[in-house]
Structures are given as C-alpha cells and as structure tokens.
C-alpha cells in the first residue's frame, strides 16, 4: 500500500495547479522511490514529467508499484479543501479504486478526510533520451515568466538564441517585433537572482509561447528555473524542488524556413 505524508499540502497543490491545464487524466506511478507522473498534452506538443521523491515526504511507504489514475480537475476540487500549511497524507491500497487524502491543520484541531474515485488509465510512457544539451540557462523563475508573458502579447512564437554574449528571446508579431537579452548575473548575496549560462555551442530554436506561458504556472514551486536547449530537439524547462523532487516540461520546437 501507499502512505505518503507531506509536511505542507502546498507542495502538491502547487504541482497540480501547474500541470492541470496541460494534462487532465494521468497516473501517479508510485513505488519505493516516490511518486512519478509522465503525461503528454492532447496535441502531443508538450510533456509533463513530475517526480516527487520519497525524500520529499515524511514518512513515505510504498512497497509495490501502484498506479493511481487521477482526473486532475477532480483532484484540484479536493485539494482546494486543504490549507497550504496543512499536513497532507495520501493513502491507497495495492490495487486501488480510490485515493484517501487527509488534511490536518498544523495545530491539529481539524482533520479533513476525502476519498477520491480513481480511473483506469492506460497510459503509454515515452522514453526520453539522455541529452547533453548545448546550452543550459539558469535564471529566476519570475524573470522567465515575465519574458514569456511580455512576448506573448506580441507574438505566438519566441526564438531563443543562446550564444557567448548571452541569451536572447526574440519575437516577431503583426504589430512589430521585440526582444529581451539576458547576460550572466552573479549576485553573491542573493543567489536566486543569478543568471547562469553554460554553453558548449550556440543554439537558436523557436517555440510556441502559449506552452511556455503555461509552464510558467510552476513558478511558485521554485525561485529558479533551468532551460536546457539543443538545436532541433525539444526544450526542457525544469523546476527543482527540495528533496530532489522536480517538475519538468518538454516542448517540441517549431522547425522550418
């Protein structure tokens, strides 16, 4: 059986909030290393890969592989009943038809308990090849969100260009064009403000802003975001959480002349 206790419900609330507009029905695949989810959006352009490691829970118990088939809209309805600071416990049997969720207020004067009906979801998993990306950019997640939102006002697509001089986000729209160039920032006092660019070769790729703006809903999970880019392969946008857990988004590029 699965028993997983989170000190603060907000972790799961934020994760589900960040992905529920991209994917609807998906399996939480549980085993002794944690809870994983992999799902593509309906258009097969974006993929969500979530890993909540056992270390992010206390305690975490799962002795077998258990697939918890969830509708994220339904899960959101239940999670809305949890306060951010509540202690959240997930429980499920080995072949579950429901997921038990309890929310305890930190001073333990209130315990809420819900059972959510599960779905049988036959989901195919994609093999994601290990890639040595040509460019890895680490930046404040709020900055990335601002860039994507600002450019989306002008255009459907953004071209991300990483070179030795910095990283440039450029768009071309009906009303004109715009670009934002970022250079390396080293803020010793406040490392969250750092902009780091690791480059093995220059890259330039175009992506749909609609999806990038959607990924930015994960901004609350982490103060920093990492973009991994190589020419002609999907972009990886990664939000790292405590305990080695992460939320990753993959986005297929736009290619052509």
């Amino acid at each position: 059986m699965l028993e997983a206790r989170l000190e603060q419900a907000q972790l799961l609330k934020k994760v589900v909030d960040a992905i529920k507009d991209l994917v609807q029905d998906c399996n939480f695949d549980c085993n002794d290393s944690g809870i994983a989810l992999q799902a593509m959006d309906n258009s097969h352009v974006a993929l969500v890969s979530m890993m909540l490691k056992a270390e992010s829970f206390n305690p975490f118990r799962c002795d077998r592989n258990i697939a918890i088939g969830l509708n994220l809209v339904s899960l959101t309805k239940v999670l809305r009943a949890a306060q951010n600071e509540d202690i959240l416990t997930l429980k499920a049997e080995d072949a579950p038809d429901s997921l038990n969720l309890t929310f305890e207020s930190s001073d333990k004067d209130r315990i809420s308990e819900y059972d959510l009906k599960l779905m049988d979801i036959d989901q195919e998993h994609l093999g994601i090849p290990d890639t040595d990306y040509s460019a890895t950019i680490s930046m404040p997640s709020a900055e990335f969100k601002r860039i994507c939102t600002d450019l989306m006002a002008m255009s459907e697509s953004v071209t991300i260009e990483a070179g030795k001089d910095g990283i440039k986000f450029a768009c071309n729209g009906d009303i004109g064009n715009g670009s934002i160039t970022l250079r390396t920032v080293q803020d010793v006092e406040n490392k969250e403000n750092n902009i780091e660019i690791a480059l093995t070769e220059p890259v330039s790729l175009t992506f749909s802003l609609k999806y990038l703006v959607n990924f930015c809903k994960a901004q609350n999970l982490s103060k920093t975001v990492k973009l991994h880019i190589s020419n002609e392969v999907p972009l990886l946008v990664e939000y790292a959480m405590e305990g080695g857990s992460y939320l990753r988004f993959y986005l297929a590029p736009k290619i052509g002349d």
């Binding site: 097969h44 392969v233 999907p234 052509g256």
Partner: peptide, 14 residues
C-alpha cells in the same frame, strides 16, 4: 513559417 513539431517524433514509446 515554422511548423510545430510533435514530441512523438523525438520521444518514442517505451
């Protein structure tokens, strides 16, 4: 114009 690619042309089912 550039054409949106599908993820399935990069990632294959396990």
């Amino acid at each position: 114009t550039k054409k949106q690619q599908s993820l399935t042309s990069f990632f294959t089912p396990k």
